[in-house]
Design a protein around this nucleic acid. Sequence first.
DNA 1: CCTTGACTTGGACTAAGTCCAATGTAGGAT
DNA 2: ATCCTACATTGGACTTAGTCCAAGTCAAGG
Lengths: 124, 124
Amino acid sequence: MTAQRRVVAEVLDGEHVHLTADEVHARAVAKLPEISRATVYNTLGELVSLGEVLEVTTDNRAKRYDPNAHRPHHHLVCSRCGAIRDVHPTGDPLADLPASERFGFMVSDVEVTYRGVCPDCTKA
Amino acid sequence: MTAQRRVVAEVLDGEHVHLTADEVHARAVAKLPEISRATVYNTLGELVSLGEVLEVTTDNRAKRYDPNAHRPHHHLVCSRCGAIRDVHPTGDPLADLPASERFGFMVSDVEVTYRGVCPDCTKA
DNA sequence: CCTTGACTTGGACTAAGTCCAATGTAGGAT
DNA sequence: ATCCTACATTGGACTTAGTCCAAGTCAAGG
């Protein structure tokens, strides 16, 4: 555990939002000015492999990193401004995929992304 | 309706798979050698706006274009090789998102992506 | 035949991320 | 305490996917 990794972990821990890698880097630089982008990418990659952090891809622009990896949840994304909320739908979509629709895959995971317009964008 | 647009539409129509923009361009060039990448991007963008084609983002690499826009469906993706199948789960995930979990959003759409390992990759 | 407006082209540009060789450093062995 | 070694970090070059734009082309109507 190096200073750099601790800083990246702290950034994600402190912010309950969904940051891009560049945003993580910016906040990390504020705490440890000499940290490089490559290290932030490396560390984020490790945190993802360890299952401590989730990668979220909502718009094919930058990936976002979600520190809330331990309580399963899905996402609700504003199609105008890109705001993201964690949501907890009822029901289990995995159960809704019958064997006949699995094509022999070993299905292990499912991601659900709801899209809509957030209250702020509805007003504006 | 220009020759270029017709070619792009034909490519998507002919292939029942999920092509990237570059793959669409490659196949379009085979039919109309002077077609440019910019035109392929423009035309794909128009087809998406018209609702004729869906954009699918599974891995934060290239977007893929799905000509099967008229029958609603979701996707099953192999986490090893990236293969994509269309699937039709039972149930409606929109109904599984209670108002209390909508945070005032006007929710209009939901995408479900199942992940697993395909038969070929399980063998290998 | 000329004009007009839309379509297309190719190349430059951008954003996000990866890769790599060189450098630095933490922590165990002596 | 010092040295070694393996791993972490750095910064810059590179790649990929996509966007943007000025200039060129084309088709249709007048």
